[in-house]
Design a protein around this nucleic acid. Sequence first.
DNA 1: ATTGTTAATGATATTCATTTTCAATTTCAT
DNA 2: ATGAAATTGAAAATGAATATCATTAACAAT
Lengths: 144, 144
Amino acid sequence: MSTEEEFKILDEFIRTKNLRRSDQRQQILDVFLKTEMHLTAEDLYNIVKKKNPSIGYATIYRSLKLFSEAGLCRELHVADGITRYEHHYNHKHHDHLICTKCGKFVEIESPEIELLQEKIAKKNGFLLTKHRLELYGLCRSCKN
Amino acid sequence: MSTEEEFKILDEFIRTKNLRRSDQRQQILDVFLKTEMHLTAEDLYNIVKKKNPSIGYATIYRSLKLFSEAGLCRELHVADGITRYEHHYNHKHHDHLICTKCGKFVEIESPEIELLQEKIAKKNGFLLTKHRLELYGLCRSCKN
DNA sequence: ATTGTTAATGATATTCATTTTCAATTTCAT
DNA sequence: ATGAAATTGAAAATGAATATCATTAACAAT
């Protein structure tokens, strides 16, 4: 699939914030978009490094932060404490089902659960702004 | 309320693991049990330090880890990245509703949500082992 | 095309919660 | 009382993420 749109979003974001373009950032975005995974900064660093060995770790973090601000990626803070990043543009809200053995990520969705969450929040007088739901277990292959 | 039972649990745990008792650990457990809050290690350290100024940070962490293993407390990893600890013995499973402004913790329970979680896991071939659900928002006092 | 301003970079240092190390102390079965 | 081993406190180490800073690069104005 094409990633033109995402690059346009980044450009637009850079323009409105009066930032500047850079080759490194383009490379990082390119790799990020082409990888259908829930990457850690380290994962991304290692892949990008193959194409551009001079890239620095900090640039990976800085770029990921920028992409997040631009709405292109989402930071995922799961139980192991290592931040993972997933595609966000044109991806609707979802939660995760994670295999604790092989690390597999499955994106899940449940309007019913969301509804119940709203109910609980309301019952307690809260104005709900966000939530975090992660299910952990063993996937089909790992549970045997 | 009495905390005798919890102390017994700890003793039993220590005995079966062939560990040894210590005054520090008793003091830490005492403070932990008497504080009805979702404490950070730092919180606990500061309170215990008043009673026993010679106590070290590492001992707090070591004790909390031990209490967790003994089933007396539960580690809570919420969004700010700082681990919090809550009473676990004789407390049934619950999730949390957290005010992002004042930090208030409300314990919530929803068998309906749990059921839906099981359904989702099953649908994806997963054997569910645990989950994490946190709702974030503004509490009654903070939302105005 | 040449500037000047300022963002971006890469290397490195720093942060901060948590863990580990290690020598000294304490527990407790014998 | 003794000795093996757990526990302690202080300090060093860890590890992910961020900040610093000198250098490089982008780009608007000339």
